[in-house]
Design a protein around this nucleic acid. Structure first.
Lengths: 183, 183
DNA sequence: TAGCCCGGAGAACGACCGTTCTCCACCTTG
DNA sequence: CAAGGTGGAGAACGGTCGTTCTCCGGGCTA
């Protein structure tokens, strides 16, 4: 029998690739190899399936980037290296949460909330890695900007530009702390 | 008689506020106070109306930010001040081109192209204002990230964070040029 | 084997939407 | 005033899609 996780996996791929509103339940059904009846047993409505898609993607994405960062020599810069790899994937299409928010942010409070929480979590990761709130927030902006520009221009170059800018901000930050200590 | 520009203005407000796919031609018709027949005389299809909406918005937006920057004391930082004002507008809902790309980027080559050209133009502005390509690109990432974070978190604060980060990058850039001159 | 239940396939239903068509009131022109 | 054409209002059409329903086959149980 087809499992919940199988359906979610196929739905995730379809929704991310083409946008939530461009994918019908029938297509999810076909991709997952499940009957419409069973699909609606597992997820009582498309809205709920979309929300679960975003929650599942949030968990996988945050886990991946966090795992890549925490074991790295320089965790902050490692995030930008991870972004570069992500951007180079052939099916990269920007941030799923930004896309979903653009589509449904006005229409669905649930989607807007999930997107906001995802961005807050990403910003929280940077605050932790940078060990400074303001610096973490600035690094978040670089990363978000890189995601947007990479998606729309179709190149991975923004990740490298963002990494270089991050190096500059890190140097400035540590330089100013050095000075403060010397005063 | 209702003019083309009137229709475009109403369509722009609706499409931006709720997303292209959430607004039907009937609603544009009602908002603009025009008959469906005349609406289709002015714009032969919804696709075309959407493309013209994006082109019109691109022109207005780029004009506004450029005008605000070029007469400022510090043109680069003036862009971030302008972003702060934009984010504080009650109907701010992020970047229309990012939203449209998220909705239709896969389905419509025309929309994807307009979005790409818009982002390239914005990046071009920053390259001109910063008088340096790499610095301009990094500033673009800060601005784009601020737009995304402001839209999803619903505050104007990212503009101020981006401005402070931009001050840092500008200082670094001019410092390194200073050093190069002194060597 | 006979009856029963569960799941699959897909038809069907109702709503919505992009687009076109019909009909009518009004304005213009001779 | 008469006739023709233009534009407005909205009905109608065709397609799509979310959701539900129907029917059927196949395996489990007595």
């Amino acid at each position: 029998m087809v499992e919940r996780a199988d359906v979610l996996e196929k739905a995730e791929a379809l929704f991310y690739e083409r946008g939530v509103q461009q994918v019908g339940m029938d297509e999810v059904r076909t991709a997952a190899g499940v009957s419409l009846k069973r699909l609606y047993q597992l997820f009582p409505s498309k809205d709920r399936l979309v929300e679960e898609y975003l929650l599942a993607r949030d968990a996988r994405w945050m886990n991946a980037v966090t795992a890549h960062a925490i074991n790295a020599d320089n965790p902050v810069l490692a995030v930008f290296d991870w972004l570069a790899e992500w951007f180079a994937e052939p099916d990269f299409r920007g941030c799923a949460f930004v896309n979903a928010y653009g589509e449904l942010g006005t229409a669905s409070l649930a989607v807007a909330t999930i997107a906001r929480r995802h961005k807050e979590a990403f910003r929280g990761l940077f605050r932790d890695l940078a060990d400074d709130q303001e610096l973490g927030d600035q690094l978040t902006l670089l990363a978000e900007g890189a995601i947007t520009m990479a998606a729309i221009t179709g190149t991975a170059e923004p990740a490298h530009q963002a990494r270089r800018a991050a190096e500059g901000l890190l140097a400035l930050f540590h330089g100013s702390h050095e000075n403060r200590r010397l005063q």
